[in-house]
Each structure stands twice: as structure tokens, then as C-alpha cells.
């Protein structure tokens, strides 16, 4: 009986075509469930898109229905009044450096905690988890005062550092989960070859935890892109505002701005989705590469 051979879940095939000739009942069931779930995920996007493409009056007449006519006015206003382009640029200038900084610091820290013999590493990891457990709302004012004291208020660097610190515990923790699955033999072999910890991390560990690192970058980008309250409080000046603050500020009068807010939100979804596509495509390559190894 070759049930195991028949089950690719754990065995990414080199010959992906093989599945096509033999559709199993299980696979069909998975496909049907996935299709239904996918529909539930796509529909809200269509809802935003249709709201962005119609007039407010048309939206109010039937919010869930189909547009009776299309307009590009909302997108024009998203650029001219909401300044979505400038907001997006502001966000990128904060989020991209923060995401890179987090990735570097988290990689080093997780590597040290899992694979280098650090005394108290367990305790340190527990402390990292504790740092995630205090609600950020409580930290808002202490962090704000700190940023003010060091003279980084209304300075992008201030927000970049705060974002890095806020997401670092999560990131370190995530990477330790992946570091643990790195086969020890490989590290040992690298050690025997005379590689120091830096080279081992760079040329042995990083390629192996790439899926985790890609995921980390994608998620951090998404979380920081959508962050509102710390950005609001640290970058107080109109010109430096990030995208979610800009949109939040614009939607105070929803009945007048449905379409524009929808257009803004639709546009704001593009960068995280691009990041996702970019890194996940890469991940698929990593997957097959891993399988051929």
C-alpha cells in the first residue's frame, strides 16, 4: 500500500506534474473547501474596489450592491485631497528601514539565543516574551516621553527606532522557532571547517531559515504599514504623517468621503501585497531548492 507515497503533503515533488493524472478524492475536497474560503477572501476586496469606483450617492443607495456607474473621481481625490502618494512615501521611509533593522537585529539575537551558548538564554527568551505581553497602549505615553527627551519627536528616526523595538520581541521569538529546526550537524560541520559564528550565521543558518526570514519581513512590513497610534503620536506634523494616520484623519466624516477612503484603502493595500508576492514567490523557489538538496 503506498498511501505514504501518494501523499505529497510532506514531500514537495520534484515532478509537480505527477499529481495531475491522479486526482484523489482528498485533493478534490481540499480544492472545494479552498475555493469557498477563497471566495470569502476575495469578496471584501471587490466590495472596496466597487465602493472606490462609484459615487457616494450610488454607494448609499445600495452599499452592498453593484455600482450603477463608474467614476475615477475618488482615485483623483485620493491623490489630490488625501495626498495618498505623499502619505505612502512617508510610510515607506519609516517602514522599510525599520523592517530591515528588525530583520538584522532579530537574526543576530535569535541565532545567539539558540545556537551560541549564552548563559541565561532561556531567561532572556522568556523576558522577550514578557515584553510582548504588556499592551502597547500602556507603553504609548512612557515611550512618547522618552522619544521627546532624546529629542527625536517629529523625527523619522524616532519612529523607526520605536517600531524596531516594538516588533523586535515578536521577531526574535519567531526566528528562534525557526533556528531550532536548523540541523545541528550542519552547524557542527561548519564549525569543523573553521567557520566562526558570523560566517556560520551568514552562509549556513540564513539560507536554511530563509522561509522564516521572508515571513518575518512580510509580516513586519504589514504590521508597521498598518500601525496607527504610535505613528500618530510620534510624527505629529502634517507633512510627515504616515498612510494609516492620513486615512484615519480623513474618514472622520465618512458620509462625505466613503469613496475616497475606499480608494485610499485600496491603494494602501498594494505595497503589503507586493511585498507578499515578492517574498512568497521567492519562498516557493526556496522550497523546491530545499527539496532537491
Amino acid at each position: 500500500m503506498n498511501a505514504a507515497a501518494d501523499s505529497p503533503p510532506l514531500r514537495p515533488r520534484l515532478t509537480a506534474r505527477r499529481g495531475i493524472g491522479r486526482p484523489s478524492v482528498g485533493k478534490l475536497a481540499i480544492f472545494v473547501i479552498f475555493a469557498a474560503l477563497a471566495a470569502s477572501c476575495i469578496y471584501p476586496l471587490l466590495f472596496v474596489a466597487s465602493t472606490a469606483l462609484r459615487t457616494n450617492a450610488d454607494y448609499r443607495a445600495s452599499p452592498g450592491g453593484l455600482p450603477s456607474s463608474f467614476t475615477s473621481e475618488n482615485f483623483e481625490r485620493a491623490f489630490s485631497q488625501l495626498h495618498i502618494g505623499r502619505l505612502a512615501l512617508n510610510s515607506l521611509m519609516v517602514v522599510v528601514p525599520a523592517v530591515i533593522l528588525i530583520a538584522i537585529l532579530a537574526c543576530c539575537a535569535a541565532y545567539a539565543l539558540v545556537h551560541l551558548e549564552i548563559r541565561l538564554s532561556r531567561l532572556l527568551l522568556a523576558a522577550v516574551i514578557c515584553m510582548m505581553a504588556l499592551p502597547p497602549t500602556v507603553l504609548l505615553i512612557p515611550i512618547f516621553k522618552l522619544v521627546l527627551d532624546v529629542g527625536l519627536l517629529n523625527n523619522r528616526l524616532g519612529l523607526i527606532l520605536v517600531y524596531t523595538a516594538l516588533n523586535l520581541p515578536f521577531s526574535i521569538y519567531l526566528l528562534t522557532a525557526f533556528m531550532r529546526s536548523v540541523p545541528v550537524e550542519l552547524l557542527r560541520a561548519a564549525g569543523i571547517d573553521g567557520a566562526g559564528p558570523v560566517r556560520t550565521l551568514w552562509s549556513v543558518v540564513l539560507p536554511l531559515i530563509r522561509p522564516g526570514l521572508m515571513t518575518l519581513v512580510t509580516l513586519n512590513f504589514l504590521f508597521l504599514w498598518n500601525e496607527l497610534i504610535f505613528s500618530l503620536v510620534i510624527l505629529q506634523q502634517g507633512m510627515g504623517r504616515t498612510i494609516m494616520v492620513g486615512i484615519a484623519q480623513f474618514q472622520a466624516q465618512p458620509e462625505k468621503n466613503y469613496g475616497v477612503v475606499a480608494a485610499g484603502l485600496l491603494l494602501s493595500m498594494i505595497p503589503p501585497l507586493l511585498i507578499f508576492v515578492f517574498f512568497q514567490r521567492d519562498l516557493a523557489r526556496g522550497l523546491t531548492a530545499g527539496a532537491t538538496k
Partner: peptide
Amino acid sequence: TRWLFLLPALVLLAVLIVYPIGDA
């Protein structure tokens, strides 16, 4: 070297998270 891997993250966390947590 080992500690150098950990240090940047720890410093940042100590200043921007642990200290505010203490404050809170």
C-alpha cells in the same frame, strides 16, 4: 562575539521597551 550578536537588540529593547515597561 556571542554577546555582540545579542547586544544591539538588547540595548534597543532595554531603552525603548524595558524602561517604558518599568515606567508603566
